[in-house]
Structures are given as structure tokens and as C-alpha cells.
């Protein structure tokens, strides 16, 4: 700062670091869903979908067509509400 003028700025992050990775290490997979809900609180279903797809890939689960359609509908609805 030079008077009212900002001469240089340095970005700092980590002010809401909640140790999500460490939590995910310790909890069973179905207990992660509420945590991914609260990662981005404006579009939580989309974060959930990312987590669910990861679990499905790891466990080699095939998702039925009907569930996939429902997911797309839910994610589109979330997209509307997200700013």
C-alpha cells in the first residue's frame, strides 16, 4: 500500500479449508455424499454426481438408463439454480 494505492497484492487461499480429502479417507463412501453436497452449495447435485461416478468407476457398477436420465434432469435443475 502506498497511501490509498495498492502497489502489490498477493493472493492467499485456504480460509475455508475443511480437510475434505482427509475426511474422505476416513469415512465410508456413502457418508461422503453429504460432504460433497457442501463443497459448492449452489450446485450440490453436480458435485455429488462427480463423487458417485468415481465410486461407480472404482466398483465397476453399471448404472441403469432410467437412473442416468434422472441424474441429467436433476443436474439440469441444479444448473438453473446455480448463479
Amino acid at each position: 500500500m502506498n497511501g490509498e494505492k495498492i502497489v502489490s497484492a498477493e493472493p492467499t487461499i485456504g480460509y475455508i479449508h475443511r480437510a475434505f480429502e482427509k475426511l474422505a479417507e476416513h469415512r465410508p463412501y456413502n457418508q461422503i455424499t453429504p460432504i460433497t453436497d457442501r463443497l459448492n452449495y449452489c450446485s450440490s447435485p453436480i458435485n455429488n454426481m462427480g463423487w458417485h461416478m468415481t465410486v461407480e468407476k472404482l466398483a465397476k457398477i453399471e448404472v441403469p438408463k432410467r437412473a442416468q436420465y434422472m441424474r441429467v434432469i436433476i443436474m439440469e435443475l441444479a444448473l438453473w439454480t446455480a448463479p
Binding site: A19, E21, K22, L23, E25, H26
Partner: peptide, 8 residues
Amino acid sequence: PMRKEYRL
């Protein structure tokens, strides 16, 4: 903290 020996 992300090393396994440290507690959550």
C-alpha cells in the same frame, strides 16, 4: 496432515 499417520 495428509500423511496417513496423522489423525483426522
